[in-house]
Simulated assay, not measured.
Amino acid sequence: MSDDTRSEHDGEERLFELSRDKLLLAAILVVGIAGSGIVRRLLGELGYNDLGALVFMLGYGGMIFAIWYGWIRPMDITGPN
């Protein structure tokens, strides 16, 4: 029975199917947003507010670059000929 259902979805990726790429994307988002935000707050409480802001900007910017480089850049986004 599982072979029949798998053959129906050959070539189609299910939206909520957990894959390695989706886990990596989620990890990058969590580290880039929450991780750098937590480090920024801790550095701010220790009196290193400017360093915390720099860490947050580098973490958030690095996350955006990683998502662009890994997922958006390889897409073939072209219109019809």
Rank of each mutant, 00 (worst) to 15 (best):
D3H: 15
D4Q: 04
D4T: 03
T5F: 02
T5H: 06
S7A: 15
E8K: 06
H9R: 05
D10H: 06
G11H: 04
G11P: 04
E12L: 10
E12I: 08
E13D: 10
R14E: 15
E17F: 02
L18K: 05
S19N: 09
R20Y: 12
R20T: 13
D21S: 13
K22G: 04
L24T: 11
L25S: 05
L25H: 02
A26V: 07
A26Y: 11
A27E: 04
I28E: 02
V30I: 15
V30C: 15
V31S: 03
I33V: 11
I33A: 07
A34I: 12
G35E: 01
G35Q: 00
S36F: 00
S36W: 00
G37Y: 10
G37D: 12
R40G: 09
R40C: 11
R40M: 14
R41D: 10
L42A: 15
L43M: 11
G44T: 06
E45N: 12
L46R: 13
Y48A: 06
Y48T: 03
D50T: 07
D50E: 15
D50L: 15
G52K: 00
A53Q: 12
A53L: 14
V55T: 03
F56I: 05
M57I: 10
L58V: 13
L58F: 11
G59W: 01
Y60Q: 08
G61C: 08
G62H: 07
M63I: 00
F65T: 07
A66K: 00
I67V: 15
I67M: 10
Y69R: 15
Y69Q: 13
I72M: 07
I72P: 05
R73F: 09
M75N: 10
M75T: 14
D76C: 01
I77R: 09
P80G: 09
P80F: 11
N81V: 05
